[in-house]
């Protein structure tokens, strides 16, 4: 009995002593943290996507509280409302930014961009693009293995099985930029978000010369510069055989859409301008498009049906193992 009593007493004394030591240690080494950081963190969406450029929402909250000027900081997921709420709470000026949306700049669907070979390596865009040009003759187009899909934390980007190209759900997209980083071809761009999903953009990233582009894909930008000439707002520039529409300057006037001979300028959520007044320029524009027709089957026949991967044939390996 006395042993039991002794044990219990010793443990109690030890416990009390440790508690006293811990109390003083905790006081001595206490880390002062601004309580507002916790509050701001609660206001942020908590997706930890990294779209703001910080490691997570906590790091962003810290920066918001500590910096005097928060005009450079922006949470793409929460958007303007969240930033306004945070700024009001902290008594700082709210950063303003127009909402943006990820846009996949490739229009090479299965029918427009014929497959010339089959890839049998790991289903990853990063792997395929490090090995070779891809399943089509275009070195710039969407590979369709979905590295962007894996990277998206909001389920906003998917590969369309019919076209083989990644498509963005503008409703779900928060413009965090994760897919932009994941795409090894650099196809995804964050563009100004118009209401109702409206958009006009060059759905091609090929910097090859026109003739090469037309051989590989019927929907590619050939860098002819017609759109650049017709644009009244100076929003379109052609560099390295590729047109680019600056989404901040574009007013969705749709003039460039009818000019494009290959249909590389894509229009979403808007009706194209009526064809009637465009009848005159439409005829010469059709000429280069017609040229593309005979070129495409050539690309088809030239490419042997190969498959890509660098492993030994497994059939042989099985035979070999049996022999052993």
């Amino acid at each position: 009995m006395s042993i039991l009593l002794f044990t219990v007493l010793t443990l109690c004394v030890l416990g009390v002593l440790s508690a006293v030591v811990l109390y003083f240690v905790a006081r001595k080494f206490k880390v002062e943290e601004d309580p507002r950081i916790d509050e701001v963190e609660k206001m942020l969406p908590g997706a930890n996507c990294g779209g703001c450029g910080f490691a997570g929402c906590r790091a962003m909250a810290e920066a918001l509280v500590k910096r005097d000027d928060i005009s450079e900081l922006f949470c793409p997921v929460g958007g303007g409302d969240t930033m306004k709420a945070v700024a009001t709470y902290l008594g700082k000026a709210a950063p303003e930014k127009e909402p943006r949306v990820a846009t996949v700049r490739c229009g090479g669907t299965c029918e427009k961009r014929p497959r010339t070979n089959t890839f049998d390596g790991a289903r990853s865009c990063a792997v395929a693009s490090s090995l070779y040009v891809g399943e089509t003759a275009c070195a710039y187009g969407c590979l369709g293995y979905g590295d962007c899909v894996t990277a998206c934390a909001f389920d906003a980007i998917h590969i369309n099985p019919e076209t083989g190209i990644a498509e963005v759900d503008a409703e779900k997209c928060t413009a965090c930029g994760a897919c932009v980083k994941a795409c090894p071809k650099g196809l995804i761009e964050l563009r100004k978000k118009w209401p109702k999903g409206r958009a006009i953009y060059v759905s091609c990233m090929s910097r090859d010369k026109g003739a090469v582009v037309m051989k590989a894909c019927k929907a590619g930008c050939i860098g002819c510069g017609k759109c650049e000439k017709v644009c009244e707002f100076g929003a379109i520039t052609v560099q390295n055989n590729l047109a680019f529409i600056d989404s901040d300057k574009c007013r969705l006037c749709r003039k460039c859409v009818n000019e494009c001979p290959t249909g590389a300028i894509r229009i979403i959520g808007l009706a194209p301008l009526p064809k009637a007044p465009k009848a005159a320029p439409a005829t010469p524009a059709a000429a280069p498009a017609a040229k593309a027709e005979p070129a495409a089957p050539k690309a088809n026949s030239a490419a042997a049906k190969n498959t890509v991967a660098e492993t030994a044939e497994k059939v042989e390996s099985v035979v070999n193992k049996k022999e052993e």
């Binding site: 042997a304 991967a309 030994a312």
Partner: peptide
Amino acid sequence: LPEGDVKVLNGGPMMGRAMINL
């Protein structure tokens, strides 16, 4: 080339790289 689908390697089957342009 033999008939049907083939894989043409620049090199051998272990280290070689598959080709798409003969």
